[in-house]
Design a protein around this nucleic acid. Structure first.
Length: 489
RNA sequence: GCUCCGGUAGUGUAGUCCGGCCAAUCAUUCUGGCCUUUCGAGCCAGUGACUCGGGUUCGAAUCCCGGCCGGAGCACCA
């Protein structure tokens, strides 16, 4: 009766029947690499499957060789990225391998009198539909429809001439439901070589999905709310075939502030134009880019799970994801100095020495060693605010006082942190780099940064480090120069 | 035009099914403070919300009706 209102953690429970074995799927069209948007589907579905010890299936809905043409490499990329996200599939199904099955069911439905070949063009059919009237082809006999269907499959009609429709209720109050299309003709070969030009008649999503969800024994489906009407449409197929429909949940659109609106085809075009370096360019919302930047899969999982499954459209900022990632990497990320837009500063009255800043401010991970002569590099940004007489501290090195700005010069004023008097602001601390440090390039979503960093950064290949006062970066390569990908502050 | 769905702080969520424990949870952002060493990390604190109007009720974020706002479908895309 009175149920406690405990704050609920994670995903809401699923409606699972006694003894039911949960089967769920993620069903992308591989027309590009998985993005942060895909991650929601991957993570949430796989998380439910983990929770209920079920089966997680990846199904490639690749039945459109033309408009949203699949990309050959993307099939593997999906598996790769799912595995990276901790969502390795129990089973992988490719729709374009299963065409005969779709044809068999189509034929069966025609024989039952529940599907017909329609020769109306789009506008023509819409008129009938809007008037709640049958088109002339709807009442053709089973025999005639079968003949037409066989000619259609055999490639005897041109594109757009014929389509197979499922009979629903032509007078249904919702126009979206009335006699939807199930197959159309596309004479463009499929990109997969094993499929190629074997088929000219391709199923539409509502049909393909309906058949597959039943064939694969799906118990629960989570999908975008743009597919809400699908259940009603597909329900007719299920009714004709005597099947039970899986339990469905819908979620709203997800928009990410940092990336705004993007389309796979738009991104592909921009990459081809050389606007981006590739599908893992740090400015892109792909999972490959996230991985390269050092975003942990666990952070993405947590982020998506906490977002939950709601029907409202969400417009989120990546700050939350970054914060999650930062918590995970902060204890293990070593600290280094990286000076972008470096300028030289000469320090007078000082002996060369070795600075030994700690690798981490709180974890006891040892220290780095930096040889310092009489000159160091500091950021141009820091330099620009300096005036003669300013006192500041070079972090983990010593204190200086600016003596000249026109060649930038300072004098050494002591090793220890000056005591802070009450009410006074603590001395300004800036970071620096040795004059003979390693060249470093940072590729970030907000631009490219070039400068000099500590030489020891070269030992951190593939690790996530923090460049002090700059942000967390993954060291991507250490060849002639160090290349780092920016993760977040 | 027809049909469907949704609306809790800047953002995302918990709570809504089964009204009282909700002057509303958690996270993030923002602001401020702390730190013998990051103006950017860390630590601490603070600001900040039930779309509006009616109704039912002793009592409504929760139930009902209406308005407003937002989203989606009506494709030979997925």
């Amino acid at each position: 009766m009175s149920v406690k209102k405990e704050p609920e953690k994670g995903l809401k429970p699923l409606d699972v029947a006694e003894g039911e074995k949960v089967v769920m799927r993620f069903a992308p069209n591989p027309n590009g690499p998985p993005t942060l948007g895909s991650a929601r589907g991957i993570v949430v579905n796989s998380e439910y499957v983990k929770k209920y010890d079920g089966t997680f299936i990846i199904r490639f809905d690749d039945t459109d060789p033309q408009t949203k043409r699949p990309m050959l490499e993307a099939y593997d990329w999906y598996i790769e990225d799912c595995t990276w996200l901790g969502a390795a599939p129990d089973k992988v199904v490719i729709a374009s391998d299963r065409m005969q099955m779709y044809y068999d069911y189509a034929e069966k439905l025609i024989e039952m009198g529940q599907a017909y070949v329609c020769f109306c063009d789009g506008g023509e059919f819409k008129k009938y539909k809007d008037a709640k009237e049958s088109c002339p082809h709807r009442n053709e006999s089973v025999e005639v429809n079968l003949t037409h269907w066989k000619k259609m499959v055999a490639g005897e009609y041109e594109e757009k001439v014929a389509v197979l429709r499922i009979k629903t209720d032509i007078k249904h109050k919702d126009p979206a439901i009335r006699d939807f299309g199930a197959f159309r003709i596309v004479k463009v070969p499929h990109p997969r070589p094993e499929v190629g030009d074997k088929y000219v008649v391709w199923p539409l999503l509502d049909f393909e999905g309906a058949i597959e969800d039943h064939e694969l024994g799906m118990t629960h489906i989570i999908r975008g709310k743009d597919l809400m009407d699908s259940e009603t449409r597909q329900g007719y197929i299920y009714k004709y075939l005597g099947w039970d429909y899986p339990k469905t949940t819908h979620w709203g659109r997800i928009k990410i502030h940092e990336f705004g609106k993007f389309s796979t085809s738009g991104l592909r075009h921009a990459i081809e134009e050389g606007e981006y370096t590739g599908w893992d360019d740090p400015r892109l919302p792909t999972l490959r880019a996230m991985r390269r930047r050092g975003i942990k899969p666990e952070a993405i999982r947590k982020f998506m799970i906490e977002m939950g499954v709601g029907e409202t459209d969400v417009s989120i900022s990546l700050d939350t994801l970054y914060a999650e990632n930062r918590k995970m990497v902060d204890p293990t990320a070593n600290r280094y100095f990286f000076v972008w837009d470096p300028v030289e500063i000469e320090i007078q009255d000082v002996e060369p020495r070795t600075a030994t800043p700690p690798l981490h401010p709180t974890e006891n991970r040892g220290q780095r060693e930096i040889e310092v002569g009489t000159k160091v590099l500091i950021c141009k940004d820091d330099m620009e605010s300096l005036e003669v007489g300013d006192k500041l501290r070079l972090k983990d090195l010593y204190n200086i006082e600016i003596t000249s700005t026109a060649p930038l010069q300072a004098k050494y004023t002591g090793d220890s942190m000056p005591p802070v008097k009450k009410g006074e602001k603590r001395i300004r601390i800036i970071h620096w780099a040795p004059i003979d440090g390693a060249p470093v390039k940072v590729l970030a979503p907000h631009g490219e940064f070039n400068g000099i960093g500590e030489r020891q950064i070269a030992n951190e290949l593939d690790n996530l480090v923090q460049f002090e006062r700059f942000g967390f970066c993954r060291i991507d390569s250490v060849d002639h120069e160090i290349v780092a990908y920016f993760a977040h502050k």
